[in-house]
Nucleic acid binder design. Structure first.
Lengths: 198, 198
DNA sequence: GAGAGAGATTGACAAATGTCAATAAATTTC
DNA sequence: GAAATTTATTGACATTTGTCAATCTCTCTC
């Protein structure tokens, strides 16, 4: 049985080295300031109106961000193992969050805190470089998601998602996929049956 | 009359120091690898399908990014003086661009090239830190724009834009604002007249 | 200041999606 | 494995937005 700190070390090293090679010392330090958090499926991890001071590295499970418009929910993103999750504009600008974060399965998250991370940048300048590369990729992926929301027809959104970003499609109930596409579950249902019928 | 390199130096120093103090040497180097480009209003600066190897710092003018869906244009962003513009996912991942970039006025752009910038990161590690901070803000702002696209009703989009992001509203023809909101110019026109009538 | 051209408004109608309700299917819980 | 709960489908209808065409307004140019 591995110690918890070893699990944290491995998860962080694996994640960061995908972007850019980092020193063992940096990873050790990050492991020392982070902790695992276990949440049940359906848990609200961040509430609209709160400030988001954490970023989560998903060890296990699947997590979404969603905004509320009136009484409706619109999912901004859905992500799973070995990816980061946070409320971007709240985390980076310290404003209150416009989105909720919620687990869609029982999940294990590695939690990093804003304040601790700021100190890491001071102590390990190399951290700037790897985080820059992470931001570049995540920003690109966010633009990709935004592209879907700009497609004017529901069927185009579904097709684009199905072809390009289908990682989570078979893992979450369709209602979340519909919400991610910004359409009603009934609309998605009709589109799917049209596609099946040809 | 200032020399061109002085103009470039000032523009870059002013832009970067807003995010994080940087060395004079870094700014000088950036000034030495960049050049001004003048474009007329309506010029296409980047075409869909091309790779975007440049990032532009706008000295004067106003610029938009837009995607084409069928025969329609949807504006992803509009930005002006002292802001950066590029095709994010193409610039960062070297994929072909899904968006056009176009000037909406006669504009002066300071051009930085991908390859040169990569060398700057090697030569000036401090550049990673300031770029990280820039990315954090721009990523946050992109999420803010994406929030608008997720609002389900046209009137909510207009109201949100009007209250929160009205920087360019009075500077570009309404048709670009409509396109930015992902709605038809006729729909925006009707919404505006409804609002005026109360 | 007449004419051209772009931008904006308005009306009539079409198309797409949302809403609400009923029901079916799948999954979870005991 | 039966009951309960969640998820998905389908139908009827309402609402919103898009489409197309006509017209108006504003700028710019000559």
């Amino acid at each position: 049985m591995k110690k918890k700190i070893e699990l944290r070390f491995e998860l962080i090293a694996n994640f960061l080295n995908n972007f850019f090679p980092v020193s063992k010392e940096l990873v050790q330090h990050l492991a020392s300031i982070s902790y695992f958090k276990e949440v049940k499926g359906g848990s609200i991890i961040l509430k609209i109106g709160d400030r988001c001071s954490n970023v989560y590295l998903i060890k296990k499970g699947i997590v979404r961000g969603f905004v509320k418009i009136g009484n409706k929910e619109i999912t901004s993103w859905i992500t799973c193992e070995n990816e980061l999750a946070t409320s971007i504009s709240s985390f980076f600008t310290n404003k209150i969050s416009k989105e909720n974060i919620q687990s869609l399965e029982e999940s294990t998250l590695l939690v990093f805190d804003n304040v601790n991370l700021d100190l890491v940048f001071k102590k390990f300048p190399e951290f700037n470089e790897v985080v820059r590369k992470i931001l570049q990729l995540y920003y690109s992926q966010a633009e990709e998601r935004a592209y879907i929301t700009r497609l004017p027809r529901a069927i185009d959104k579904w097709n684009y998602l199905f072809i390009n970003l289908n990682k989570f499609i078979h893992r979450v109930p369709l209602k979340y996929t519909a919400s991610f596409l910004g359409i009603r579950i009934e609309t998605l249902s009709r589109i799917r049956s049209l596609i099946i019928k040809g």
